[in-house]
Amino acid sequence: MNMNVSTVSQAANAAPVDRSPILSLVNVSKTYVRGKLVALTDVSFDIGQGEFVVILGPSGAGKSTMLRCINRLAQPTGGQVFLRGQEITDAPRSLRKARREIGMVFQQFNLVTRLSVMTNVLSGRLSYRSTWRSLFYSFTREDRAIALECLEMVALGHKAFQRADTLSGGEQQRVAIARALAQQPKIILADEPVASLDPKIARQVLDYLRDVSQRLGISVICNLHQINFAREYAQRIIGLSQGKLIFDGPPGALTDDIISQIYGTRVESSGE
């Protein structure tokens, strides 16, 4: 058995600590219908390596849109996005390479339910493989080792060969996290990852997310609407309201007043 297969954790520990921002948004705006529908206005912030940032805001605030502007599932209509110093706002050629470095976790998990858990995680490796190889659904030994390691990190190695739809909601989300990890990304974008899960399972999933972020030095940008989760898990909170960034700071600086501004109403900060 070849013990030299490079693994995700080995690669992470070998990488030098980077002080420059992994991701920069500069005045990113997004409008629809020729400018009549404004989703985002001049959103700017930097994300450093290994940061766990929570984007807090009500529905419709533009959290999803902002995340999708980063990996260009949505196209920004204004401003720029920089990944590790390189602009990725427009370039079509490097899109696949840029997306390789950005993992995404969705509210609806978005696994291919008929495929096995293992194959779902392996699909995170597709950006590293040629089309020809994928025609035969073939992956390298390294890919399989990485996939299994990612599954172990979310404690689902024992379910690797089951069909994805036999898993519970929380387990499916963990598989989705493993899929994102298999990309060996620098950032993971999590769009309301726990909105469909009950609080206990939600905490489990967020625990795993925070754990891999710390262990592997992956930056996480997590959209949440639950204030208590934001306070518990974020190193830094960015408050979004009606497409504008109105708060950027540590959870400790999040006062009731600011929460009311974000949610546009009087909110009990100890509530859900």
Partner: peptide, 26 residues
């Protein structure tokens, strides 16, 4: 949904068809 997830992961068109669409219609 799964198609979008594969797009976000950087998969190419054919890979998305093979891994995202074909298993669903098979």
């Amino acid at each position: 949904g799964p198609v979008e997830a594969l797009q976000a992961a950087g998969a190419g068109r054919m890979q998305i068809i093979l891994f995202g669409i074909m298993p669903q219609v098979l």
